[in-house]
Design a protein around this nucleic acid. Structure first.
Length: 463
RNA sequence: UCCACAAUAGCUCAAUGGUAGAGCAACCGGCUGUUAACCGGUAGGUUGUAGGUUCGAAUCCUACUUGUGGAGCCA
């Protein structure tokens, strides 16, 4: 009877004493003259199955003892309980067959490797404990996001990946073109003639699906997108990637408060799901990556997030007496050091900061009655910083156009967006969650390149 | 893009101006229950690249490359 290692760990009872067959890869093995042990991982579970093989029980003992790491094998034998050992049970092998060979120059050894080294071989990383755990949590979190929104009746919608608007304020964009770079058509003004390009205009990879999600929200009330996003920023940090996944809900008939409620509920839902579904992985992170991780997450799940206005945040920072590299004053954008101080030192938990000065936020955010601020919100978390950014959208036609003109924006590409305001453009809100940053928060892994299978950053696009 | 630090064996590191070393991995041998198994042995190097200082450079200087951390930008 063929068994998955996951089945054995989750419900081993009926299988003790039974003959079973397993397939998998050798993670590590050790052998003497007469007895040897293989740690087998079959991909279905974070933990390994120990296979015991003895010289007088299998006919190819010498060969099996020499199988290099990552050899794919099939093993047949009896599953027995081992209450006095590290592992709860093991397979007493009667037959072990090599399915695919490995080699002794396999780069992963039975020792600890640095993240830096593993980043050079991203195609092998998923075979390590750390990355196995990271990508299982990533899977669990992604599915939990869908469950959360589906449970509330949100419609999962797909915004386009290629766009003709330049995503005002959201950073540098990757150009999408089929023009021959060695022979670019030129206009009378001596600029590239994009009317000859594939879409007969200038196009880019999206930096957000928000604007299109707004159109969908004004038809379906509650929607969310969950898709790749692209930013061509030259940013070299542990929390930026050129290609990352963003989840963007958009809710009609929702104000900034509803927005914050949804963010908080969503984060807690995903956290609980991961803690429940990936206990072995989370225990691993807690032990080897971040000692206080489980305590931190339990705390987040069971406490209210803090909610303060930007103005209050500035006051708190001013009163703190702490000497910052950048002085704090109303109207400035909060620097990383300020955000971290608020969430890590003052509150020691997730903090919503809302109602920012309009000058430092995007054009589409709703102007508040005070004439100075907009209904924007950032969620700051310890260790990561900003993990969610959102706002109530400016649903009033006139103020929106006025603001766009103020910013000297070309209204033409946004005609459709402005039209939404003229026909039932009810008040609505939404936000964007950096999915990788959430995974970093959930796992304690501090570099975004270690929560993406094949990270794309400035100067790096391999595999 | 800016600032700081780093680069020595496959991996992780030592050697602070005077003959480049260890642990692990690999290879050979030993070992009857291992848990990063253990024990003995063998092999493995143009010290990131280019130039300079010096009788002599892994070590000091310059540039470049790559990596890491931080900042800016942001999710």
């Amino acid at each position: 009877m063929k068994k998955f290692v996951r089945q054995l760990y989750r419900s081993p009872e009926g299988t003790f004493g039974q003959k079973i067959k397993v397939e998998g890869w050798i993670r590590t093995s050790r052998a003497s003259n007469t007895i040897g042990f293989i740690e087998l991982n079959d991909g279905t579970f974070f933990k390994n199955l120990q296979i015991v093989f003895e010289a007088d029980k299998i006919e190819n003992y010498k060969d099996v003892a020499r199988f290099p790491i990552s050899t794919a094998i099939e093993a047949y034998g009896t599953l027995i309980e081992t209450p006095d050992s590290k592992q709860p049970f093991e397979l007493q092998a009667e037959e072990i067959i090599e399915l695919a060979p490995s080699s002794n120059d396999y780069p992963l050894q039975k020792k600890r490797h640095t993240r830096e080294f593993l980043r050079e071989i991203p195609w092998f990383r998923p075979r390590t404990n750390l990355f196995s755990a990271v990508f299982r949590v990533r899977n669990s979190a992604a599915y939990a996001i869908h469950r959360f929104f589906q449970g509330k009746g949100f419609v999962y919608t797909h915004a386009p990946i290629i766009t003709d608007s330049d995503g005002e304020g959201a950073g540098e964009m990757f150009r999408v073109t089929t023009l021959d770079l060695m022979n670019v058509p030129i206009t009378d003004q001596n600029t590239p003639d994009y009317s000859k390009d594939f879409f007969a205009k200038s196009t880019y990879l999206n930096v957000t699906g928000q604007l299109q999600a707004e159109a969908m929200a004004l038809a379906f009330r509650d929607v969310y997108t969950f898709a790749p996003t692209f930013r061509a920023e030259n940013s070299n940090t542990s929390r930026h990637a050129a290609e990352f996944w963003m989840m963007e809900p958009e809710m009609a008939f929702a104000d900034l408060n509803d927005n914050m409620n949804n963010i908080e509920e969503m984060i807690k839902f995903v956290m609980k799901a991961v803690l429940e579904e990936c206990p072995e992985e989370m225990e691993f992170f807690n032990q080897f990556v971040d000692k206080g991780l489980l305590e931190t997450l339990e705390n987040v799940v069971s406490n209210e997030f803090e909610r303060i206005t930007y103005t209050e945040a500035v006051e708190l920072l001013e009163k703190s007496g702490h000497k910052f590299d950048y002085d704090v004053h109303w109207g400035m954008d909060l620097q990383t050091e300020h955000e971290r101080y608020i969430t890590e030192k003052i509150f020691k938990k997730p903090v919503f900061v809302y109602n920012y000065p309009k000058e430092i936020k995007a054009f589409y955010m709703r102007h508040n009655e005070d004439g100075k601020t907009v209904a924007a919100v950032d969620l700051l978390v310890p260790g990561i910083g900003e993990i969610v950014g959102g706002s109530q959208r400016e649903e009033r036609y006139e103020p929106l156009v006025a603001r766009m003109k103020e910013l000297d924006m070309d209204l033409e590409p946004y005609q459709w967006y402005l039209e939404l305001r003229r026909y039932g453009g009810v008040y609505h809100s939404g936000y964007g969650l950096g999915f990788e940053r959430l995974i970093m928060y959930l796992t304690g892994v501090s570099n975004i390149r270690d929560v993406i299978v094949s990270p794309r950053t400035v100067g790096h696009c391999n595999f």
